[in-house]
Simulated scan of single mutants.
Amino acid sequence: MTQFQRENALKSILPGGENHDYYKLKLDKITSFTESLVGSNGALVPIIFRPFHEFDGDWFWWGQSFCTIEEYVQLWQLTVTYLKNTLSVNNMLFAFSPDNRFFSESEYLARYSRDDFVAIMGMDNYGNFNNQGQAGVERANQKLKIVSDLTEERVKIASLTETRYFVTLIENGAIPGFFTNNLFEALTHNDVKIGFTMFWYNYQDKYCTPVPGLPSANDFMEFVSKPKVILADDLPEMYRLPPNS
C-alpha cells in the first residue's frame, strides 16, 4: 500500500466513505463462510473473529498512526453491529487484541469499544518472548495480569491471542525450558487466568510448536502435561450445561 492508501483506508470504509459499501460486501462474504460452519449435530460451530488486531502498531492500515481513537472505535462498532444485527450472525465471538505495547489498564483500553461489543480480551505478544530472558517473561506476565484482571472485572474471556518464539536450525536455537519455564510462568504467575493461547504456525525452515524429534519437543510435551494446560482436543464438553446447573 502507498502511504496515501494507508492513511485513508480505514476512513474510506466508514459510513460516507468511498469504500463503505465495498467493506459491507466483505462482511457479507465473511457471513457466508460462518454460516457454512455446521457441526455433525447440525448446529452452527462457534468461532472467534479477531478483526483489526495489533492496532497499537503501524504495520497494518488500521494501526494507530492511520486513524484516530474515535475512528477505530467507530469501525469496530460498525463491524460488530452489521454482522450481528443486520446479517444475524450469532456464532461469532469478537476478540479485542492489541500488540504488547501497553503497560497499564488505561493504555490497554485506549481503543476499546463498549463491553457489549467485545467477548474476548487478549493481546498478541512476540517481543517479550523473543530471547528476552527472565525480564521478558516478567513483562509478559505483567501485561497478561492486566488482561486477566480486566476480564474478571468485565466478565470476558482472557487470552494470549498470538505468541511464539521462532526456532531455526541455523540462526535461532531453541531456548531451554521455553515452554515449561518462560511461557508457563508468564501464563500463570501472579494469579493470571488465561482462557486460551494461540501459537503462530510453523514454516518449512522454522517452527513455533515443535514436532517429535525437534530439540524442544520434550520441553513442549512437559509443558502440555502440566495441570493448568489443556490442549484443544482434550477440552471437556463446553456446550452442555452440567446437571442441576
Score class of each variant (00 low, 15 high):
Asp115Leu: 12
Tyr201Ser: 08
Ala135Asp: 09
Asp124Trp: 04
Gln132Trp: 07
Asp149Asn: 15
Asn90Ile: 05
Arg114Glu: 15
Leu93Thr: 02
Phe102Thr: 10
Lys145Ser: 13
Ser148Phe: 05
Pro176Glu: 12
Leu93Val: 11
Leu78Ser: 08
Trp76Asn: 02
Ala135Gly: 05
Met123Gly: 04
Phe129Ser: 00
Cys208Gly: 14
Phe199Gln: 11
Gly177Val: 07
Asn190Cys: 05
Gly136Val: 01
Gln74Trp: 04
Ala119Gly: 12
Ser88Trp: 03
Phe103Gln: 08
Phe184Met: 09
Trp76Ser: 08
Ala110Ile: 11
Asn125Gln: 07
Arg164Met: 05
Asp99Asn: 15
Asp99Glu: 10
Phe129Ala: 02
Lys206Val: 04
Arg154Cys: 00
Val155Trp: 08
Ala158Asn: 05
Met198Ile: 15
Tyr82Ile: 00
Ala140Trp: 00
Phe117Arg: 03
Asp149Met: 09
Ser88Tyr: 11
Phe96Gly: 01
Phe103Thr: 13
Asn90Glu: 13
Val155Tyr: 06
Ser97Met: 05
Ser106Glu: 15
Leu160Ile: 06
His189Val: 12
Gly173Trp: 00
Asp115Gly: 09
Tyr72Asn: 05
Glu138Gly: 02
Ser97Lys: 06
Ala140Val: 02
Met92Arg: 05
Asp116Leu: 02
Asn125Ile: 04
Phe117Gly: 02
Leu144Lys: 02
Leu78Gln: 13
Thr188Pro: 09
Asp116Lys: 05
Asp205Gly: 07
Ala186Pro: 07
Leu187Val: 03
Ile69Gln: 13
Arg154Tyr: 06
Cys208Thr: 07
Met121Trp: 11
Phe196His: 12
Tyr203Pro: 00
Ile157Lys: 05
Ile69His: 05
Asp115Lys: 03
Gln132Ala: 14
Ala95Met: 15
Glu185Ala: 11
Phe199Trp: 15
Gln204Asn: 13
Trp76Val: 01
Glu70Arg: 09
Thr168Cys: 12
Glu185Lys: 09
Met121Gln: 06
Gly173Ala: 12
Val167Gly: 02
Lys156Arg: 12
Asn190Trp: 08
Lys143Val: 06
Arg154Asn: 07
Val155Asp: 13
Val147Pro: 00
Thr197Gly: 04
Asn90Ser: 15
Glu153Arg: 15
Ser106His: 02
Val89Cys: 11
Ala135Ile: 06
Val89Leu: 13
Ile194Ala: 10
Glu71Asn: 07
